[in-house]
Design a protein around this nucleic acid. Structure first.
Lengths: 250, 250
DNA sequence: CGAAGGTTTGAGAAAGTTCAAAGCTGGTGG
DNA sequence: CCACCAGCTTTGAACTTTCTCAAACCTTCG
């Protein structure tokens, strides 16, 4: 809470690499995937491949578990711009009825992704018999709820630049590679997609990224490779950096 | 989907009055509350009374069930404006770990509200033995997820006026009283609070409400009483009115 | 190497914010 | 029962931020 704590480049705030869960939880997660695997369909989704467009909770509703990659929930109402509503990382869970009934709703793989799909009914049965499944479901859903509520707060309360910084921090935490003095990561979304997620337009987003580059907070090679030269400086661009670390740095 | 369907003032799009669940579900809901009641603490929250400020999922985490009234999740980071992150209506469920770890986070009763509180551990046990509880939990959580994702879309994709209209529609659906030719309802939030929820400032919000009044879409008596003289006209102010009806008009 | 499509940048326009002042409302006490 | 006060709400004017549009510029991929 103090200045001392903020200025320290603590290890626990650094990205840990691209793993859905870490430490002790890793073993349990392996169990979970093994338990589910025999009851589910594996999906290997190519980038920009839409996964489904069928909200609503009927008897045959499906549930997805993201095993690897990066998936977003997007909608595209007629005559309106596409909007990206939420992000899903490995370990995340998504029921079809989590999607609001709106035009063009669907999951979109933003990078090569790997998912399990099964009927919700089946999953509910499995939760009853396998504690590891029900524990993961409840724990993960709570994390996702918190992230989603936070995203509403980000859109509502932060300046454009802080929003962009917050998203970069999130990406770094979830799929960054820590190196000697910084973090490198690939942007899984195009400028236009990031803009749609952050309630900006692509031009403004580009301007902000240019500003961050000229400030020396990040540098860029190619279109997607970002190197956050100074992790602390990037965190300082976002007033919710501590919250992001807490929610994504599990 | 067609013009015909849109122009018809269909009954199923009109508010049904202030009940947490309706129709056949009403009986099951009564069962649910009875089942929970003996294991939970009843809370009668006065308006503007903060309910808790303790996010994080420890062993003694609590879960709330909103029985009556209207509750919001708000945060107030130091030196920053308060932000209202989400709304909770009767029937809604809230685990402490659904709250992102951010300064000044807490539930706030916006009108006289009635909640049940119990330990999450206890609730998880009850879900195992009482199907009505587990069904409600899963079904309601899906609805809340969808609403929260939609809220992100509202903040990101709609103009200020459409955001305001969407919130008014939501209030009307959840606590409106249908009358001969329109719907009347009380605003549970002050102008400043609505603004905080919609990512506007209070001045702009006031201007927009004035505009809606001068357009004849709504009229106002006192500070809180709103009468939507022409329900169809109000729906037409929001491009997501159909989605709102689907999510709130259960 | 060249085409296609995403990205960056500038200039003008629109939307929303800020600040300040006036106007209401609802509650309190005489 | 009315007057008054505190606090919320409304409105105006100037300002800031972000958006739009257009053109130029890169990357990537065939």
């Amino acid at each position: 809470m103090t200045t001392q704590q903020r200025s320290r480049q603590s290890d626990d705030e650094m990205p840990k690499g691209p793993s859905p869960t870490r430490g002790n939880a890793l073993l349990r997660y392996a169990d979970l995937v093994r338990d589910l695997d025999s009851h589910a369909t594996q999906i290997h989704a190519q980038p920009r491949k839409n996964l489904f467009i069928e909200p609503g909770a009927d008897a045959d509703e499906v549930i997805y578990l993201v095993l690897a990659g990066f998936v977003v929930l997007e909608c595209k109402p007629e005559n309106e711009r596409r909007r990206i509503l939420r992000t899903l990382y490995p370990g995340d869970i998504f029921r079809a009825s989590f999607a609001p009934p709106i035009g063009g709703i669907g999951l979109l793989a933003a990078m090569p992704s790997n998912l399990l799909r099964l009927k919700w009914r089946k999953f509910e049965d499995l939760m009853k018999s396998e504690k590891v499944i029900s524990d993961h479901y409840h724990q993960r859903l709570a994390n996702q709820e918190a992230r989603l509520a936070l995203h509403a707060g980000v859109l509502g309360g932060l300046t454009a630049q802080a929003r962009v910084a917050s998203l970069l921090i999130e990406f770094a935490l979830c799929m960054g590679q820590p190196s000697t003095d910084g973090v490198s990561f690939d942007l899984p979304l195009s400028r236009a997609e990031m803009a749609d997620y952050l309630a900006l337009n692509a031009d403004t987003l580009s301007r902000i990224i240019s500003r961050l580059k000229s400030k020396g907070v990040i540098s860029q090679s190619g279109r997607q490779k970002i190197f956050a030269h100074n992790w602390r400086a990037l965190l300082d661009e976002s007033p919710i950096s501590k919250t992001l670390v807490a929610l994504h740095g599990i």
